[in-house]
Protein backbone atom coordinates (compact mmCIF):
# COMPACT_ATOMS: atom_id res chain seq x y z
CA UNK A 1 0.00 0.00 0.00
CA UNK A 2 1.34 3.40 -0.86
CA UNK A 3 0.29 7.02 -0.90
CA UNK A 4 1.80 10.12 -2.49
CA UNK A 5 1.34 13.54 -0.95
CA UNK A 6 1.97 16.50 -3.23
CA UNK A 7 2.65 19.84 -1.60
CA UNK A 8 3.64 18.11 1.61
CA UNK A 9 5.09 21.09 3.46
CA UNK A 10 1.65 22.34 4.38
CA UNK A 11 0.66 21.47 7.92
CA UNK A 12 -2.47 19.67 6.71
CA UNK A 13 -0.55 17.62 4.15
CA UNK A 14 1.98 16.54 6.74
CA UNK A 15 -0.79 15.41 9.09
CA UNK A 16 -2.47 13.59 6.19
CA UNK A 17 0.79 11.79 5.43
CA UNK A 18 0.96 10.62 9.06
CA UNK A 19 -2.63 9.32 9.01
CA UNK A 20 -1.98 7.14 5.97
CA UNK A 21 1.38 6.04 7.33
CA UNK A 22 -0.30 4.97 10.58
CA UNK A 23 -2.45 2.71 8.39
CA UNK A 24 0.74 1.11 7.11
CA UNK A 25 1.08 2.87 3.74
CA UNK A 26 4.49 3.63 2.30
CA UNK A 27 4.56 7.38 1.74
CA UNK A 28 6.07 9.54 -0.96
CA UNK A 29 6.35 13.15 0.07
CA UNK A 30 6.85 15.81 -2.57
CA UNK A 31 7.44 19.54 -2.35
CA UNK A 32 9.44 22.23 -4.09
CA UNK A 33 11.62 22.54 -0.98
CA UNK A 34 13.17 19.06 -1.05
CA UNK A 35 15.13 19.51 2.19
CA UNK A 36 11.88 20.30 3.92
CA UNK A 37 10.14 17.33 2.30
CA UNK A 38 12.98 15.16 3.63
CA UNK A 39 12.40 16.46 7.18
CA UNK A 40 8.73 15.52 6.93
CA UNK A 41 9.61 12.11 5.50
CA UNK A 42 12.02 11.57 8.40
CA UNK A 43 9.28 12.50 10.87
CA UNK A 44 6.92 10.00 9.23
CA UNK A 45 9.60 7.30 9.37
CA UNK A 46 10.42 7.93 13.04
CA UNK A 47 6.78 8.10 14.13
CA UNK A 48 5.35 5.22 12.12
CA UNK A 49 8.23 3.07 10.92
CA UNK A 50 6.91 3.00 7.34
CA UNK A 51 9.00 3.59 4.25
CA UNK A 52 8.76 7.33 3.58
CA UNK A 53 10.59 8.87 0.64
CA UNK A 54 10.96 12.55 -0.15
CA UNK A 55 11.27 14.05 -3.60
CA UNK A 56 11.02 17.22 -5.61
CA UNK A 57 7.65 18.28 -6.94
CA UNK A 58 6.73 21.45 -8.76
CA UNK A 59 3.09 21.87 -9.78
CA UNK A 60 3.93 24.10 -12.73
CA UNK A 61 6.59 21.80 -14.19
CA UNK A 62 3.85 19.93 -16.02
CA UNK A 63 5.96 18.24 -18.67
CA UNK A 64 7.72 16.37 -15.86
CA UNK A 65 4.58 15.03 -14.18
CA UNK A 66 4.21 11.68 -16.05
CA UNK A 67 7.84 10.75 -15.48
CA UNK A 68 7.60 11.87 -11.84
CA UNK A 69 4.63 9.60 -11.21
CA UNK A 70 6.58 6.70 -12.75
CA UNK A 71 9.53 7.49 -10.45
CA UNK A 72 7.27 7.65 -7.41
CA UNK A 73 5.68 4.30 -8.19
CA UNK A 74 9.13 2.82 -8.66
CA UNK A 75 10.11 4.09 -5.20
CA UNK A 76 7.04 3.21 -3.13
CA UNK A 77 5.02 0.93 -5.37
CA UNK A 78 1.82 1.51 -7.37
CA UNK A 79 -0.18 4.28 -5.69
CA UNK A 80 -3.30 3.31 -3.80
CA UNK A 81 -3.88 6.91 -2.94
CA UNK A 82 -2.70 10.32 -4.07
CA UNK A 83 -3.38 13.57 -2.25
CA UNK A 84 -2.99 16.85 -4.10
CA UNK A 85 -2.52 19.21 -1.19
CA UNK A 86 -0.73 22.08 -2.84
CA UNK A 87 -2.19 25.50 -3.46
CA UNK A 88 -0.99 29.03 -3.86
CA UNK A 89 -3.02 32.17 -3.25
CA UNK A 90 -0.25 34.27 -4.76
CA UNK A 91 0.32 37.87 -3.85
CA UNK A 92 -1.80 39.78 -6.25
CA UNK A 93 -2.00 43.54 -5.99
CA UNK A 94 -5.47 44.96 -5.73
CA UNK A 95 -5.69 46.16 -9.32
CA UNK A 96 -4.27 42.99 -10.86
CA UNK A 97 -1.76 44.94 -12.93
CA UNK A 98 0.48 41.90 -13.22
CA UNK A 99 -1.20 39.09 -15.09
CA UNK A 100 1.91 36.93 -14.81
CA UNK A 101 1.23 36.63 -11.07
CA UNK A 102 -2.41 35.76 -11.70
CA UNK A 103 -1.43 33.22 -14.31
CA UNK A 104 0.89 31.51 -11.87
CA UNK A 105 -1.97 31.17 -9.38
CA UNK A 106 -4.12 29.59 -12.10
CA UNK A 107 -1.29 27.30 -13.20
CA UNK A 108 -0.51 26.01 -9.73
CA UNK A 109 -4.06 25.57 -8.53
CA UNK A 110 -5.71 24.37 -11.71
CA UNK A 111 -3.57 23.56 -14.75
CA UNK A 112 -0.77 21.95 -12.74
CA UNK A 113 -3.24 20.08 -10.56
CA UNK A 114 -5.12 18.76 -13.59
CA UNK A 115 -1.85 17.76 -15.25
CA UNK A 116 -0.84 15.74 -12.20
CA UNK A 117 -4.28 14.13 -11.91
CA UNK A 118 -4.04 12.94 -15.52
CA UNK A 119 -0.63 11.41 -14.84
CA UNK A 120 -1.85 9.59 -11.71
CA UNK A 121 -5.29 8.61 -13.06
CA UNK A 122 -3.86 6.65 -15.98
CA UNK A 123 -2.19 4.07 -13.75
CA UNK A 124 -5.05 3.90 -11.27
CA UNK A 125 -7.58 3.35 -14.08
CA UNK A 126 -5.42 0.58 -15.55
CA UNK A 127 -5.20 -1.11 -12.17
CA UNK A 128 -8.90 -0.52 -11.59
CA UNK A 129 -8.30 0.77 -8.06
CA UNK A 130 -7.18 3.81 -6.15
CA UNK A 131 -8.24 7.00 -4.42
CA UNK A 132 -7.40 10.44 -5.74
CA UNK A 133 -7.95 13.35 -3.40
CA UNK A 134 -7.90 16.95 -4.56
CA UNK A 135 -7.70 19.55 -1.80
CA UNK A 136 -9.52 22.67 -2.87
CA UNK A 137 -11.16 25.56 -1.15
CA UNK A 138 -14.58 27.02 -0.44
CA UNK A 139 -13.21 30.03 -2.29
CA UNK A 140 -13.94 28.03 -5.45
CA UNK A 141 -17.68 28.07 -4.82
CA UNK A 142 -18.32 31.66 -5.84
CA UNK A 143 -16.25 34.39 -7.43
CA UNK A 144 -15.52 37.27 -5.08
CA UNK A 145 -13.58 40.44 -5.69
CA UNK A 146 -11.05 39.68 -2.99
CA UNK A 147 -9.68 36.39 -4.35
CA UNK A 148 -11.41 35.40 -7.57
CA UNK A 149 -8.23 34.40 -9.41
CA UNK A 150 -7.43 31.81 -6.74
CA UNK A 151 -11.15 31.05 -6.37
CA UNK A 152 -11.66 30.50 -10.10
CA UNK A 153 -8.69 28.15 -10.29
CA UNK A 154 -9.95 26.15 -7.29
CA UNK A 155 -13.47 26.24 -8.75
CA UNK A 156 -12.20 24.94 -12.07
CA UNK A 157 -10.26 22.23 -10.24
CA UNK A 158 -13.44 21.19 -8.42
CA UNK A 159 -15.28 20.99 -11.74
CA UNK A 160 -12.43 18.98 -13.23
CA UNK A 161 -12.49 16.55 -10.28
CA UNK A 162 -16.24 16.19 -10.70
CA UNK A 163 -15.78 15.05 -14.28
CA UNK A 164 -12.86 12.84 -13.40
CA UNK A 165 -14.89 11.21 -10.63
CA UNK A 166 -17.67 10.52 -13.11
CA UNK A 167 -15.21 8.96 -15.57
CA UNK A 168 -13.14 6.95 -13.09
CA UNK A 169 -16.05 5.66 -11.02
CA UNK A 170 -16.65 3.09 -13.76
CA UNK A 171 -13.01 2.05 -13.49
CA UNK A 172 -13.06 1.46 -9.75
CA UNK A 173 -11.18 4.62 -8.85
CA UNK A 174 -12.55 7.02 -6.27
CA UNK A 175 -12.07 10.77 -6.63
CA UNK A 176 -12.70 12.99 -3.62
CA UNK A 177 -12.94 16.77 -3.64
CA UNK A 178 -12.05 18.52 -0.39
CA UNK A 179 -13.28 22.06 0.13
CA UNK A 180 -11.57 23.65 3.07
CA UNK A 181 -12.86 26.57 5.05
CA UNK A 182 -10.69 28.24 7.66
CA UNK A 183 -7.99 25.96 9.00
CA UNK A 184 -5.18 27.26 11.21
CA UNK A 185 -2.41 27.19 8.61
CA UNK A 186 0.08 29.52 7.05
CA UNK A 187 -2.71 30.78 4.76
CA UNK A 188 -4.95 31.95 7.58
CA UNK A 189 -2.22 32.97 10.08
CA UNK A 190 -2.96 36.45 11.36
CA UNK A 191 -6.50 36.42 9.97
CA UNK A 192 -9.00 38.09 12.27
CA UNK A 193 -12.29 36.24 12.17
CA UNK A 194 -15.09 35.22 14.46
CA UNK A 195 -15.69 32.05 12.46
CA UNK A 196 -14.27 29.00 14.23
CA UNK A 197 -10.96 27.82 12.80
CA UNK A 198 -10.10 24.12 12.69
CA UNK A 199 -6.67 22.71 13.44
CA UNK A 200 -4.72 21.14 10.56
CA UNK A 201 -4.76 17.84 12.45
CA UNK A 202 -8.57 17.91 12.63
CA UNK A 203 -8.71 18.62 8.91
CA UNK A 204 -6.38 15.67 8.23
CA UNK A 205 -8.51 13.37 10.39
CA UNK A 206 -11.62 14.44 8.49
CA UNK A 207 -9.97 13.88 5.10
CA UNK A 208 -8.71 10.47 6.17
CA UNK A 209 -12.08 9.37 7.52
CA UNK A 210 -13.97 10.73 4.48
CA UNK A 211 -11.63 8.94 2.07
CA UNK A 212 -12.41 5.64 3.79
CA UNK A 213 -16.14 6.31 3.41
CA UNK A 214 -15.63 7.25 -0.24
CA UNK A 215 -17.16 10.69 0.22
CA UNK A 216 -17.42 12.63 -3.04
CA UNK A 217 -17.17 16.18 -1.75
CA UNK A 218 -16.01 16.96 1.76
CA UNK A 219 -16.51 20.39 3.24
CA UNK A 220 -14.31 20.97 6.29
CA UNK A 221 -15.15 22.34 8.77
CA UNK A 222 -18.58 20.93 7.78
CA UNK A 223 -20.60 24.10 8.49
CA UNK A 224 -18.92 25.67 5.47
CA UNK A 225 -21.29 23.67 3.25
CA UNK A 226 -24.14 25.69 4.73
CA UNK A 227 -22.28 28.98 4.58
CA UNK A 228 -21.40 28.47 0.93
CA UNK A 229 -24.93 27.25 0.26
CA UNK A 230 -26.19 30.62 1.41
CA UNK A 231 -23.50 32.57 -0.41
CA UNK A 232 -24.25 30.74 -3.65
CA UNK A 233 -27.93 31.62 -3.49
CA UNK A 234 -27.44 35.38 -3.26
CA UNK A 235 -28.62 36.80 -6.59
CA UNK A 236 -25.81 38.17 -8.71
CA UNK A 237 -27.61 41.51 -8.94
CA UNK A 238 -27.16 41.92 -5.20
CA UNK A 239 -23.88 40.01 -4.86
CA UNK A 240 -21.96 42.32 -7.20
CA UNK A 241 -22.65 45.22 -4.84
CA UNK A 242 -21.32 43.39 -1.78
CA UNK A 243 -17.77 43.36 -0.54
CA UNK A 244 -17.36 39.90 0.98
Amino acid sequence: MSVAIFGATSRIARAVALRWAEDGHAVWIGARDVAEAERIAADVRVKTGVNAVAGAFDAVDMDAHPALVADIEAAVGPLDCAVLAFGDMGELDEDHTDFAAARRVIDVNFTGAASLCEAIATGMAERGAGTLIGVGSVAGDRGRQSNYVYGSAKGAFALYLQGLRNRLFKRGVHVMTVKLGFVDTRMTWGLKTRIPVATPEQAADAIHAAAKRKVDTLYYPPFWRAIMGVIKTIPERAFKRLSL
Binding site: A42, D43, K47
Partner: peptide, 9 residues
Protein backbone atom coordinates in the same frame (compact mmCIF):
# COMPACT_ATOMS: atom_id res chain seq x y z
CA UNK B 1 5.74 24.99 18.03
CA UNK B 2 5.28 24.05 14.39
CA UNK B 3 8.92 23.16 13.88
CA UNK B 4 8.24 19.82 15.44
CA UNK B 5 9.65 17.14 13.24
CA UNK B 6 11.36 14.08 14.69
CA UNK B 7 14.35 13.58 12.44
CA UNK B 8 16.00 10.37 13.54
CA UNK B 9 15.73 7.71 16.21
Amino acid sequence: RRLDRMLDF
